[in-house]
Amino acid sequence: MLDDRARMEAAKKEKVEQILAEFQLQEEDLKKVMRRMQKEMDRGLRLETHEEASVKMLPTYVRSTPEGSEVGDFLSLDLGGTNFRVMLVKVGEGEEGQWSVKTKHQMYSIPEDAMTGTAEMLFDYISECISDFLDKHQMKHKKLPLGFTFSFPVRHEDIDKGILLNWTKGFKASGAEGNNVVGLLRDAIKRRGDFEMDVVAMVNDTVATMISCYYEDHQCEVGMIVGTGCNACYMEEMQNVELVEGDEGRMCVNTEWGAFGDSGELDEFLLEYDRLVDESSANPGQQLYEKLIGGKYMGELVRLVLLRLVDENLLFHGEASEQLRTRGAFETRFVSQVESDTGDRKQIYNILSTLGLRPSTTDCDIVRRACESVSTRAAHMCSAGLAGVINRMRESRSEDVMRITVGVDGSVYKLHPSFKERFHASVRRLTPSCEITFIESEEGSGRGAALVSAVACKKACMLGQ
């Protein structure tokens, strides 16, 4: 009897593995994704193909990295998701002549009506938060230079001027797309009239992360975010950046690689679950690469896999709870928690219980395998993109072996128990001629924006502006 049951459990697990095998990517698959990513990057950089390229390769006008001589107080704003952060950054000489960066910050959550109302409502709310922060720190009387981390696709015309191309991540505030974001912020500050600010720089969160990590390690020339969304930036040779005049030196390019796949480059790798996630998203047909990796989508992918296993009578005796059938019910943090389970399955059992399920031991094991399959594919897909960037940098610099540091931020990278190990191992397999160091950014977005502002202020002083 026991043997029969054991055989049935083994057969069930084997069927589960057959279904989950769809998520496995072979090294040849990853090399294919990497080569296609490089081709799209090239198209994004070139003037004649930029418009139709899915990977936009947006110039950021960040050319210099901090040298350690900029000092002063800077205000930093960070808008990239449902939370908005205001930070005071003091850049100065530390002990023994070292450079020191001290920060104080406060988080504000953005109400739904500000995210989806008008641009005026959104930026009025942001300036209200700045006003509140300055009151708390008794700094209303000071006109501070301000660095703005704005983590949406922007076409820069200068370091302090950028046109919002399109909202992502659930934002829909009308009247912002096609307009200068810094102008919208300046107008809102003017409307309030109770404080003055000098907006000197606007950067993407990947750029802010790279600059913040450069402060720790001067070989950091790539910034990457794996959180709600997924994106990367890197220092490109100016001669390859056709959208900006000049051939000397390097400029940081914001790849906006989340949109890779929007022209069909990933079609052969998309599964039924991916198509369902895409169809029910706020932007169907867009940001397809990001939807395979980002935390906004990972939990939902797992939920759809679990429903398939229920329908195949391989999980929960073929019956799903009402909660499990509800879109968004299986949160991405559950994926991390399930994979963090120590082996007694308590954590998995508790999560499934909150979803109205009474799982068996085998159910718990199957749910864990589903989570591992989805998150491992995410790590491997992400590795193909980064390997594409790094191999490109090595080739354009004609280096036999390139040493490089990548600064990384984002909740999936930082909080998932195995993502970074799987990701690092896969990147290294795909970049055999590179020695890569990964560092995690601390308060990256805010500190990085302030350091970019410090560079901009120093330049302005040198130019006598």
Rank of each mutant, 00 (worst) to 15 (best):
E319A: 08
L430W: 09
S109V: 11
K458T: 15
Y297G: 14
A119P: 06
F171Q: 12
I159V: 13
R308H: 06
K296P: 15
F269Q: 04
F171W: 11
L315M: 13
D278H: 14
E331M: 12
T206P: 05
K142D: 09
R403G: 09
R327D: 09
K142Y: 08
K13W: 10
D363F: 01
A450C: 13
M210A: 02
V226T: 02
L146M: 10
E319S: 15
V408I: 10
E312W: 11
R392C: 05
A188D: 01
S375K: 04
I351R: 04
D3Y: 03
G183R: 02
V412A: 09
L352C: 06
A259E: 12
M115W: 11
L164T: 13
E372V: 04
R392G: 08
V89Y: 04
E322Q: 09
G193W: 09
M235V: 06
E319G: 14
V455C: 13
V253T: 05
A208P: 00
R428Y: 14
F438A: 02
K56T: 04
L75N: 00
L45D: 03
D247I: 05
E256S: 13
V55F: 08
E442F: 11
L288G: 13
E265F: 11
L463N: 15
V222K: 00
K458E: 10
T60M: 01
V427F: 08
R46Y: 09
E14F: 14
L77Q: 01
T65W: 06
A188S: 07
G147K: 06
S433M: 09
A21D: 12
C382A: 11
L79G: 09
V455E: 12
K161G: 10
V62G: 00
W99R: 09
V181A: 05
K414G: 08
S398R: 08
A201L: 00
V226C: 03
G444L: 14
V389Y: 01
C382D: 08
M210F: 09
R325V: 11
S280V: 10
S375D: 05
S212A: 08
Y234H: 12
K56F: 10
Q98R: 11
V200S: 03
N391D: 11
L243M: 05
Q347P: 01
V241Y: 01
I390C: 08
C364Q: 02
H105S: 10
H156N: 14
E322N: 09
D135H: 02
A460G: 07
G385F: 07
E399R: 10
L276H: 10
C213R: 11
F133Y: 05
R428L: 14
Q239Y: 08
Q337I: 08
N180R: 10
V89Q: 03
T103P: 02
E279V: 13
G117Q: 04
L355C: 04
T116P: 10
L79A: 06
G385Q: 08
S263K: 13
A11V: 14
G68W: 03
D278G: 06
G318R: 11
D344L: 06
G261C: 06
E319Q: 15
F133R: 00
K346D: 10
F123N: 11
G464H: 12
M238C: 02
Q465W: 02
S453K: 14
D187W: 01
D4A: 08
S321G: 07
G388V: 06
M41G: 02
L415S: 11
A10V: 14
Y297E: 07
A425E: 08
L77P: 00
V241I: 05
E319Y: 15
M107Y: 13
G170T: 14
T354L: 13
L144A: 04
I366G: 02
N179A: 13
V338P: 00
A201P: 00
L146R: 07
A282L: 15
R303H: 11
V182L: 14
D198M: 01
P153W: 13
Y108W: 09
G72E: 00
E52Y: 09
D29E: 08
M202V: 02
H50Y: 06
T376E: 06
N350D: 15
E51W: 11
S212E: 12
F84N: 02
F195M: 06
K161P: 15
R325A: 10
G193V: 06
G448C: 05
Q98V: 07
T49W: 11
K32A: 03
Q38F: 04
V200L: 05
T116Q: 10
A384C: 13
K31G: 08
K346L: 09
E221G: 02
V86M: 03
E265V: 06
T326P: 05
K12Y: 15
R186L: 04
A425F: 10
E237Q: 04
G264Y: 13
A320V: 14
A173C: 05
E443C: 15
K346E: 06
V305R: 00
D135W: 04
E319R: 09
C364Y: 03
C213Y: 07
A201F: 01
R325P: 06
H156Y: 14
R63N: 00
D262M: 12
T118P: 11
N179V: 12
T209E: 05
L307H: 03
G68P: 14
F330A: 03
I159P: 13
K102A: 08
D217V: 02
A176V: 09
I404E: 07
K459C: 13
E14H: 10
T118R: 11
L357M: 02
L184I: 12
D363K: 00
R303P: 00
D267W: 07
V408K: 00
N166T: 12
E248I: 06
V200Q: 03
K31A: 12
I348A: 03
E177R: 08
G92V: 04
R429G: 12
F269H: 04
M139I: 04
G294W: 07
L266V: 07
Y297N: 05
F84D: 00
S411D: 09
S445C: 12
K32P: 07
E70L: 09
